[in-house]
Nucleic acid binder design. Sequence first.
DNA 1: CATGAATGAGCATTCATTCAT
DNA 2: TATGAATGAATGCTCATTCAT
Lengths: 182, 182, 182, 182
Amino acid sequence: MESAIEVIAEAGYTQASTTRIAERAGVSRGLISYHFTGKEELIAQVLVTVFADVGAFMGPRVAAESTAAGQLRAYIQSNLEYMALHRSRITALVEIIGSGALGAMGVDPVAAEKEALAPLVEVLQRGQASGEFRQFDPLTMARAIRAVVDSVSPHASDPDLDLDACAHELTTLFDLATRDTR
Amino acid sequence: MESAIEVIAEAGYTQASTTRIAERAGVSRGLISYHFTGKEELIAQVLVTVFADVGAFMGPRVAAESTAAGQLRAYIQSNLEYMALHRSRITALVEIIGSGALGAMGVDPVAAEKEALAPLVEVLQRGQASGEFRQFDPLTMARAIRAVVDSVSPHASDPDLDLDACAHELTTLFDLATRDTR
Amino acid sequence: MESAIEVIAEAGYTQASTTRIAERAGVSRGLISYHFTGKEELIAQVLVTVFADVGAFMGPRVAAESTAAGQLRAYIQSNLEYMALHRSRITALVEIIGSGALGAMGVDPVAAEKEALAPLVEVLQRGQASGEFRQFDPLTMARAIRAVVDSVSPHASDPDLDLDACAHELTTLFDLATRDTR
Amino acid sequence: MESAIEVIAEAGYTQASTTRIAERAGVSRGLISYHFTGKEELIAQVLVTVFADVGAFMGPRVAAESTAAGQLRAYIQSNLEYMALHRSRITALVEIIGSGALGAMGVDPVAAEKEALAPLVEVLQRGQASGEFRQFDPLTMARAIRAVVDSVSPHASDPDLDLDACAHELTTLFDLATRDTR
DNA sequence: CATGAATGAGCATTCATTCAT
DNA sequence: TATGAATGAATGCTCATTCAT
């Protein structure tokens, strides 16, 4: 699975054949089919694992904040931090999701998106209820936040990119975009 | 090329084999290799064509605005408008770029991104120079804008999505995120 | 298809991989998938072709007889004659049917057997109606006749086997087994 | 071995992988290779066991008859009886033999056939010597009898098939086909 | 211009077998 | 005795590409 993540992150989902994954892992091609029902299951396992991991990382950091604005900042920041720590995992995630492989795996993309965005939507709604945030469509805003955060992933390995500075830029961006200034 | 766009938009880049494209176009498989050096060239042509088309659509609308803030709004709005008018073209574009096919085509992703973002970066810099926009990293902001706009594309065919409302949400989002409030 | 027939006849259906068939035909492996939707279709085509051919051979010879007993003799004899002329075709047929591949091809084995036995059952019933044949279950008798005829196929290439003599033995066998002696 | 028989009978020899056999037996895949030199040996053991069993069943019943005609009837009848009692064993036997696996196991098909037919040929020759049976080629007749009896096996599980009636049909068939009417 | 037969590399998967434990 | 991880060969198939017509 580690090898799968690395290969997908480096070469893209399309090029991530079992051959390459097996080579990277230093095992035979057949072994993948031996351990996983098929390639789909391997990918699904990767998704589940990484999702759980990133959730375990971000969850406490977001929960530690008391205000909605703080939680939003923590959400963006911790996501980018995780990206810095486990760049390839996030890259693999984005690759898999972006490749349309989920559809072929019987995953309902609408439901999956709703689930992925749910925690973010909640934060936004809480902020609106508390008066911290202005009125906007929480779903659209949540999608925008995720899109921006995910878009950083391809550049995460860029040595020119200062992730701290980037995090600061993006938290400021969405802070301004969401706060109620009345 | 039209067929290629349609197939890529409908089935995703991965599933867009020359077979399916040729079938859709009602021609033989061999003809694609006859007219284009290879699949890569076909895809490249698609990219060039669509880029030119979307540029021709957005350019005048952006140029019609006098303020940087107005140009930014026009950029976002016209991009979403084009998306509504030619959904499959944009979907195909996003599919191709997201598939990592560019790397295999000898396109320098850094240069390509720079070129794609250039007009947007210019608007942002002009706004900063004129004092309309606050200080932020223009490249990061440009990436964020593109990421958000592109993220709408998968939902463009969703009947529940009100593109006008969405455009209003997003222009407001980036208006607030960029304006100088001092 | 000719190569498929030969390979199946020589090596058995199980060993008849596309690789071997392609090698025998002197073409590439991919060509089989190019011409036929899949291996199943190739096999199906073989079946259809051979069935049509054997039907075209036996039909007139059976129809030329006026009595049911004569038709039964002609049926057995012409089947064995065809076997002598196109041994590999019949062998392939028997291999395919005996391999259970039909089930995997969505063919209803009950319906297929009924169809294959129909002409024979008709002859037997006609003979019973005319009083030439004694009373027996036509289906069981038809199955027996087919089983015996098919069982000759593996020996068809045996130089020790005198097919004429064999045909005489078997026509006599079923002549005695079916005739009404009252 | 019991599991092997069941799996072969149910799924056919081709589909009878060690995986499925091991699963059915509730043991690991490796155990099969541990106990038997290879799959071939397992199959060979199955053949030997079943042959011995069917021989032990039919032998006394055939020997109990005094006339050759009676022995032939007993042969057919007891074979069908055994089929009714141990359908899967016979099905497995027919599957294995029909699959051409014997050739791959180094079994000389000519010798094997001769051995399998020997008792039957003996009965037929004895009948001819005693004048009970007419003159025919004993080997051809023996093959025909075996072919017909074996052909019942696929239908043995058919609830519509009355095995008693079938046995009566077939004993009558070969009674008429072999008896000397002079 | 256009076709379509043909190719060969690559892919996911199955399977009998080996071997350290 | 028994397990199960691991292997490597083989299989059916897809696909972009070539080329004679």
